[in-house]
């Protein structure tokens, strides 16, 4: 049975590390759904948040193969943890001759924002989980989505209670 897993990877902040990770996925034919990279609290490391799909054996292998890379310092399989996951999306929607109130209702319900507006288009900024962003896109699709850009998910484990 295929599942999607969020994996958080702390890596050396060095040139070529992203290529090593991307090469691992392509070379071993693993499916990567999204990948987001950025610095962490420690400038010498970066955090990569990877969402990958596969059956249990494949997902297990992905974690092991990531751990095997010399530049990988730590791999956290988020599905074993309690964690917060967020993604940001910018969606440019056609509004010319359309009911903007209806669009605004959708935006408000999702606690999204309009960050750019012209007579022709509105740009929506939305933050949330993959499901939330997908739900919002489905609702605004009838207006006509001109362009969309998603960051891919980032994730952190929750604080200890």
């Amino acid at each position: 049975m295929t599942k999607t897993k969020t994996i958080s990877v702390i890596v050396e902040n060095q040139p070529g590390v992203l290529a090593r990770i991307a090469g691992l996925f392509s070379g071993r034919a693993y499916n990567i759904d999204s990948l987001a990279v950025g610095e962490t609290e420690d400038k010498s490391t970066s955090r990569m948040t990877i969402m990958a799909t596969g059956d249990e054996l494949v997902l297990d292998q992905i974690v092991k193969q990531l751990n095997k890379l010399i530049d990988v310092i730590k791999v956290v399989d988020m599905s074993q943890e309690s964690y917060v996951e967020r993604e940001l999306a910018l969606i440019k929607v056609n509004v010319a001759g359309k009911d903007k109130t209806e669009l605004m209702n959708v935006v408000n319900v999702f606690r999204a924002r309009i960050v750019d507006a012209t007579n022709e288009t509105y740009m929506i900024e939305v933050t949330g989980t993959d499901e939330k962003i997908t739900a919002l896109t489905d609702l605004v699709k009838p207006f006509g989505i001109q362009e969309m850009s998603r960051t891919g998910a980032v994730a952190l484990t929750r604080g200890k209670r």
């Binding site: 054996l57 292998q61 092991k64 751990n67 095997k68």
Partner: peptide, 11 residues
């Protein structure tokens, strides 16, 4: 010695 060799092909 290689954890990734384990259960790679056969559980």
């Amino acid at each position: 010695i290689d954890p990734s060799a384990i259960s790679k092909i056969i559980k």
